[in-house]
Design a protein around this nucleic acid. Structure first.
Length: 197
DNA sequence: CGGCCGATTATCT
DNA sequence: GATAATCGGCCGG
């Protein structure tokens, strides 16, 4: 299976967000390998995008978004949660794709152990902070290279997604963001139940 | 299933 | 000092 190249992440963020659907996030922990297919993504791009963390310019937290594509941007929010993004776009242009949901294909039982009290629920991997808990992704991995098999996690090709199967919507959680950024349709989902890779 | 609300702290003004 | 790219528990229908 092919790992996604740095050039995969270089084009405009909206197209990368759509093409990441169906790709396979691989996490290596000790001797365990966890895998999940990406089923929801969101694009954030540029300082004029008032929903993007770079909207007030470069800071220590968002600096990685200004660098080369294909690296992980992992940040902390709401006092308790880590969220995983892929840096996308050309160097100097701050942009990222938020990974919002996974469908487990490998190591499902271990992922459930990482999600205390959620094992018997139906919805336990369908949120940006749920998947980082399941895969044990925290700020210590900020800046990891997504294009290297030697990284603790990386993204490989998964299942091919037909364009008409992608559902577009507005981005989640931007409650205090002005229009048009609050409603711009840069959230993408696909139903991947039953797939494997 | 859907809506409401409290938790909890890094980050920036 | 205010805010946050969220979650999970609790409640009502």
């Amino acid at each position: 299976m092919h790992i996604l190249s740095r050039d995969f992440y270089r084009p405009d963020p909206v197209s990368v967000a759509k093409r990441l659907l169906g790709c396979c996030l691989v996490r290596k922990t000790n001797d365990k390998i966890l895998k999940g297919l990406i089923s929801e993504t969101e694009a954030y791009q540029g300082e004029e995008d008032l929903g993007c963390h770079a909207h007030n310019g470069k800071t220590p937290r968002n600096a990685i978004m200004y660098g080369p594509p294909g690296y992980a941007y992992i940040y902390f929010t709401y006092g308790k949660h880590w969220l995983l993004n892929a840096v996308v776009g050309e160097v100097g242009f701050p942009a990222a794709v938020l990974i919002r949901a996974l469908v487990p294909v490998n190591g499902k039982e271990i992922m459930k152990v990482n999600r205390p009290n959620q094992a018997n629920k139906t919805k336990w991997l369908d949120g940006p902070a749920k998947l980082t808990q399941a895969l044990i992704l925290t700020g210590e991995f900020n800046g990891s290279d997504l294009c290297s098999f030697s990284s603790p996690f990386y993204i490989i090709e998964g299942v091919k997604i037909e364009d008409e199967k992608i559902t577009k919507g507005s981005r989640i959680g931007l409650n205090n963001v002005p229009e048009p950024w609050k409603s711009i349709p840069w959230n993408f989902r696909v139903n991947l139940q039953g797939y494997s890779c």
